[in-house]
Structure formats: C-alpha cells, structure tokens
Amino acid sequence: MYERILVPTDGSVGSAHVALQAIDLAETYGASVHVLHVVDESVRAFVAGFGDESELDDRGEAAVERVAAMAREHGVDVVTAIEDGDPARRIVDYADEIEADLIVAGTHGRSGVERRLIGSVAERLVRRARCPVMTVRLPETDETVADDEAAAAIARDALVDAGIDATVTEVERQVSVWVVDAEGDDDSHLVYVDPVTRRTSIIP
C-alpha cells in the first residue's frame, strides 16, 4: 500500500511522536521513510541580514537526524533532505519528486483567530498534496518512552537482537535516559534506552 512515506519535520517538541506514526506504517508495509526539513526562505533572508545563517542549517540537520535515528533503530530504510523555500509548497513539491504515497505531518491544532492569521502548514498540505496526508497532533513532550514497562520492553528486544539471554530485573529513569538492569546465567548487563529516539546501548 505504501512504498515511500514522507515525514516533514521542523524539530518541534513532540515531533518524535509524529515520526513514530510514520515509522510504524513503514514497518507494517515495508516502506521507506523520507525525512524533510524545509528552511523557511523568509526566515533565512531575515537572518542573513544579521550574519551567520549556519544555525538554521544546524537545526535542520538535528531535526532530520533525530527522525532518521528512530527509523534506523526500527530497521526502516530512511532518506533525509534539507531544502529551502516556502515550507508547505516545498513539501508538496518534494512529495511529487519522490512519488510519495503518504505524508505524515504534525499539527499544533491551532484554531480560531490564530488559525486564520497564522495558518497551518499541515492544513495547506491537506489542501494541496496529491497524495494522502495523515496529520498527527503534536504532544507537549518529545518523549516516546514514558514509563518503565515500555523501557523494559525495548531493552528486552535489544537484548534478543544482540543474542543475549537475560532477564530484566530493574528499570530506573535517570535524568535523560532509562537504565535497565538485566541478569543472565553468567553475567549482568545494563541497557540504556533513549526516551526520545528509543535508541539502545548495551553495557556488559
């Protein structure tokens, strides 16, 4: 049903949840995920008048890499791109260029006067895109692993993938990471789980 899924991202808080929706679909259908960040041309022009524009590109790199890391962690093929232009128009054009089957986009859920004055990139995508658009409400946090059960499940999968036979014995949330203790017949392991990207690191 889907071969290429486009995920535009601006690095907003909660965008990891949007990415996970696309990644879950990609896993289900064997699709690739294309991650696009568009540097707003009007913002670049404004910043150019004051000096260094590199921060805009750095933010874009960080935004697409976060989603790419999540896709790779789930074994999904991923392609990243950073473009300049009007965000909604460039996303639509890029979707046409890669022949995307679906766009998965986050929305802030604006309404009323704010919606009329500012508008919504997601709303413009729904109106203009030639392929289906799935909109996902952006939550107020980037975290995608919010409880110890989810962290334990991810750690178990990582251990299995690494060929390690061990049982999770304890899960603790530290400042910026989940720490999972696991015990095997002959040794013990620590599994670190990133609460945003779900990336894991196993320490013997």
Rank of each mutant, 00 (worst) to 15 (best):
D93S: 15
I82Q: 01
A68G: 04
E65N: 10
I154L: 03
E149M: 13
D93M: 10
V121C: 02
V121L: 00
M134A: 14
E83S: 14
R90L: 14
R115H: 01
G85Y: 03
R124M: 06
S111L: 08
R124A: 05
E140L: 14
L56K: 11
I103C: 11
V79H: 11
A63L: 01
A68L: 05
R128K: 10
R127N: 02
H108E: 07
V78Q: 00
L102D: 06
T144I: 15
V113Y: 06
A81F: 04
D93A: 15
G112W: 08
M70N: 05
R90S: 15
D86Q: 12
A152T: 04
A153M: 03
D93Q: 14
V145F: 03
D142K: 12
R72H: 13
S111Y: 09
V64A: 09
V104H: 01
P132H: 12
R130C: 08
D147M: 02
E143F: 09
D147L: 06
A105C: 07
A68H: 02
D77R: 13
R156V: 01
M134L: 13
A122M: 07
D57H: 14
R90P: 15
A95P: 08
G119S: 00
R128L: 08
E114K: 04
D147H: 07
V113W: 07
R127T: 15
D96F: 07
A151Q: 01
A153D: 02
P132S: 06
E140Q: 13
A95M: 12
T135N: 13
E140N: 13
V133W: 03
V76F: 05
A81V: 12
R66L: 09
D93H: 15
V79T: 14
P139Q: 08
E61I: 02
G119K: 04
A151Y: 04
A69I: 04
C131N: 07
V121S: 03
A152I: 06
D96Q: 15
A62E: 04
A100F: 02
A88D: 07
R127S: 06
V79I: 14
D142P: 04
M70G: 10
V76I: 12
A81T: 13
E61K: 10
E73W: 09
I118Q: 10
D57V: 11
A88L: 14
I103W: 09
R116Q: 12
V104D: 07
T144H: 03
A152P: 00
R156G: 02
R128E: 12
R127Q: 10
V78D: 02
V113N: 11
V136H: 02
V67G: 05
A105R: 05
A105K: 12
E140Y: 14
T107I: 00
R90Q: 13
L102M: 08
D147Q: 06
V76W: 02
E149V: 09
R124N: 05
R110Q: 07
R66E: 03
T107G: 01
M70S: 07
